[in-house]
Design a protein around this nucleic acid. Structure first.
Length: 507
RNA sequence: GCGGGCAUAGUUUAAUGGCAAAACUCCUGUUUUCCAAACAGGUAUCGUCGGUUCGAUUCCGUCUGCCCGCUCCA
C-alpha cells in the first residue's frame, strides 16, 4: 500500500515548516518529545482555516447537522462500553533472539506430556491447523529427546495463559529454542490520568482516543433538546490522544492530534450503502474545495473479512503523501453498534420514536472521521513546489512556493509599498492594510527589495500580493499592482475590485 | 519495543584533540521605480549527561530526538 518516493520532499517540508513557522517540534529546547508538535504563527492560521472551512461546510451551511463540543476526559465506562479499554490493549511478546514480536493472543503453546511427565513445551502461531502443528512438534520433541512412552494429545493454550514458570521453557516460534520469549506486555494506546485527589484504581480516567464517543454519549441530549429529525448528524472538532508505539512521518501519526468527526444518524431501514457512498463523495468534494488535487486522492475499500466487528463497510480516502499512499479520511458505516453498546452499558435506551411506524428505533450511523493534522500535512505536501525562474538577464533561480487554496491560505493578501522611504506610498499602503484586515488575514511588509518580498510570500503560500507603486499615487484611478502567486502575472486592480476578488475566492 | 544510520547558527552544509567556517534566512540601518540587488552591523554555551585527556564539538559510553527497516496503528 505504501511506496517510498522523493524522500527529500519530506525533509524539505519539515525544514520549510520550521523555517517559516508552520510546525515546530514540541518542547524543542528540552530535546523534543516524540510524537508531539507545536504550530507556529503561519501553521496555526492554516490549521484554523482548515477547521473553520470544515465547520462552515459541515455544520453551518447544512440544515441537517448540528455541532457539539464534548469533554476530553469522559466517564471511564464510556471507553469500556465502546470497546476501547479491551480492544485498544494488545498483549505483545518479544523474542529476544530473533527480535520478532508476536501478539500473545495469536501465539499458542502446549506442554508435551509423556506418561504423565512433562518433557518440554512446543509453540506455534495461530493458523488453520494450530493443533496439528503443535502435535507434530510434540512428536518431534519426543523423538529428539529419545523419550519412551505414550505421548498425550496436546492441550493448546494461548500464550497469555502461560505462567511465569512456563514462559522460560516455551520455545520461540522463530528459533525453536526456549528462553528467549518475554512475558506478554500490554500496550494500551489510551493515555491514563487520575481524576480527583486520590491516585488509585477508582480514580483512573482516560484522555479520549477519538472524539466520536462524545456524539454517541450526547445523542439523547441533542435529539431531546433540538429539533433534529432523522436523518441528521452531530459533528465535533477536538483533540484526541493515542499513545502510539511508533509515532512516524512528522505530523502524520502523532500522539496528540485533532479530529473532525461527524456521526450521521439514519433510520434503521434506510439504504445505508447509498448514504455511505454519498458521504464519501461529499468528503472527496470537500478535499478538492480546499485545493487537494485529484491526482493525489484515491479510495481504499476495506475488504469485508478485515472489517472491524462493528463495521458494515469502511472506505478510506487515501492521499499520496511523500512517504506513500496513506489514509486521510475514513468513512465507516457503523450500524447501530455504538448506541446499542451505550444503551446496554448505561441502562438508558438510546432510541428515537418513529412517527411512521409508531415504533422506537435505534438509528444506524455513517461516520466520516478525519484528522486536521493529516489534512494540513496533505495541503503542505500537495502545495509545495520548487520552480526554476529565469530573470531578465537569463539567470535561473529557484523559487519555493506553497500553492495553498485561498480558502485556507494563512495570509490572503500581502500589502507591499514599492519603497519604504516614500511616505506617499507607505501611507496609501497602510490605509489599504487597515481596511483589509477588518475582514481578512493580511500582512504588511516594507522590508527589502520588492522581489524578495514576493518570494517571502510565496513561501508562506499567500495567493496575492498588492503593491502600491508610483502609478497608484501619480495616475488617476487609484490602482495597485496585483501579483498572482502561481503565475507571477501582474495586473492593475482597484480597491473595489480587490475586495470583490477576495469575496469570490475566500469563503 | 528491536536493528541500522544521523545530531555543528533559524535553514542547508564544512572543518578540527588546542580562538568553529560558509551560503541563504532573520533582525537593525543606508539605499532601492516590480520578482531572493548592494553596503555596514548583529545572531552558536557544536542535542543531553558522564568518561578518557593537560585540554573533547571532535574519541568512548548513557539518555533524548530525527531518518530508514521491523513491530504497532481497536
Amino acid at each position: 500500500m505504501s511506496s517510498t518516493e522523493t524522500p527529500h520532499l519530506m525533509e524539505s517540508l519539515v525544514s520549510l515548516a520550521k523555517r517559516r513557522g508552520f510546525v515546530y517540534p514540541s518542547s524543542e529546547i528540552y530535546g523534543g518529545l516524540n510524537g508531539f508538535f507545536d504550530y507556529g504563527p503561519l501553521g496555526v492560521e492554516l490549521k484554523r482555516n482548515i477547521r473553520d472551512c470544515w465547520w462552515r461546510d459541515m455544520v453551518q451551511r447544512r440544515d441537517d447537522i448540528v455541532g457539539i463540543e464534548t469533554s476530553i476526559i469522559m466517564h471511564p465506562k464510556v471507553w469500556e462500553a465502546s470497546g476501547h479499554v479491551a480492544g485498544f490493549t494488545d498483549p505483545l511478546v518479544d523474542c529476544k533472539v530473533s527480535k520478532q514480536r508476536y501478539r500473545a493472543d495469536q501465539l499458542f503453546f502446549a506442554a508435551v506430556v509423556v506418561d504423565n511427565n512433562t518433557i518440554g513445551y512446543v509453540s506455534a502461531l495461530e493458523s488453520e491447523n494450530t493443533v496439528g502443528e503443535l502435535q507434530t512438534a510434540a512428536e518431534q520433541l519426543k523423538r529428539k529427546k529419545a523419550v519412551q512412552g505414550t505421548l498425550a494429545a496436546v492441550q493448546p493454550k494461548e500464550f497469555t495463559e502461560a505462567t511465569a514458570e512456563e514462559i522460560p521453557l516455551i520455545p520461540s516460534p522463530a528459533t525453536g529454542e526456549p528462553g528467549s520469549l518475554t512475558p506478554p506486555r500490554a500496550f494500551n494506546m489510551m493515555f491514563e490520568t487520575n481524576v480527583g485527589a486520590m491516585r488509585d484504581a477508582s480514580s483512573v480516567a482516560y484522555l479520549r482516543p477519538e472524539t466520536a464517543q462524545g456524539m454517541f454519549v450526547d445523542f439523547k441530549n441533542v435529539s431531546d433538546t433540538t429539533r433534529v429529525k432523522l436523518p441528521f448528524g452531530i459533528a465535533q472538532i477536538g483533540k484526541s490522544f493515542r499513545n502510539e508505539i511508533t509515532p512516524r512521518n512528522f505530523i502524520f501519526r502523532s500522539r496528540e492530534f485533532e479530529q473532525m468527526e461527524m456521526e450521521y444518524f439514519i433510520h434503521e431501514d434506510a439504504d445505508w450503502a447509498q448514504c455511505h457512498e454519498e458521504w464519501i463523495v461529499w468528503c472527496e468534494n470537500w478535499l478538492r474545495s480546499i485545493g487537494l488535487p485529484d491526482s493525489h486522492l484515491s479510495r481504499y475499500t476495506h475488504p469485508k473479512e478485515k472489517l472491524a466487528f462493528y463495521s458494515r463497510g469502511t472506505v478510506d480516502i487515501m492521499f499520496k503523501y511523500p512517504f506513500g499512499v496513506q489514509e486521510l479520511w475514513g468513512i465507516a458505516a457503523r450500524g447501530n453498534y455504538d448506541l446499542t453498546q451505550h444503551a446496554n452499558a448505561s441502562g438508558k435506551p438510546q432510541e428515537l420514536f418513529d412517527e411512521a411506524t409508531k415504533k422506537k428505533i435505534v438509528p444506524h450511523v455513517i461516520e466520516p472521521a478525519v484528522g486536521v493534522d493529516r489534512i494540513l500535512l496533505a495541503v503542505l505536501a500537495a502545495g509545495y513546489a520548487e520552480e526554476d525562474v529565469t530573470d531578465d538577464k537569463g539567470n535561473v533561480e529557484k523559487r519555493t512556493v506553497l500553492r495553498f487554496s485561498p480558502r485556507i491560505a494563512p495570509v490572503k493578501v500581502a500589502i507591499l509599498p514599492l519603497l519604504k522611504n516614500k511616505e506617499q506610498l507607505t501611507n496609501r499602503a497602510k490605509d489599504l492594510y487597515t481596511k483589509l484586515r477588518r475582514n481578512y488575514a493580511v500582512q504588511y511588509d516594507d522590508g527589502g527589495a520588492i522581489g524578495k518580498r514576493y518570494r517571502r510570500q510565496d513561501e508562506a503560500g499567500t495567493p496575492w500580493c498588492v503593491t502600491i507603486d508610483f502609478e497608484t499615487i501619480e495616475k488617476p484611478g487609484d490602482t495597485f499592482t496585483l501579483r498572482e502567486r502561481d503565475s507571477m502575472q501582474q495586473r492593475r486592480i482597484t480597491e473595489a475590485e480587490l475586495f470583490a476578488l477576495l469575496a469570490e475566492h475566500v469563503y
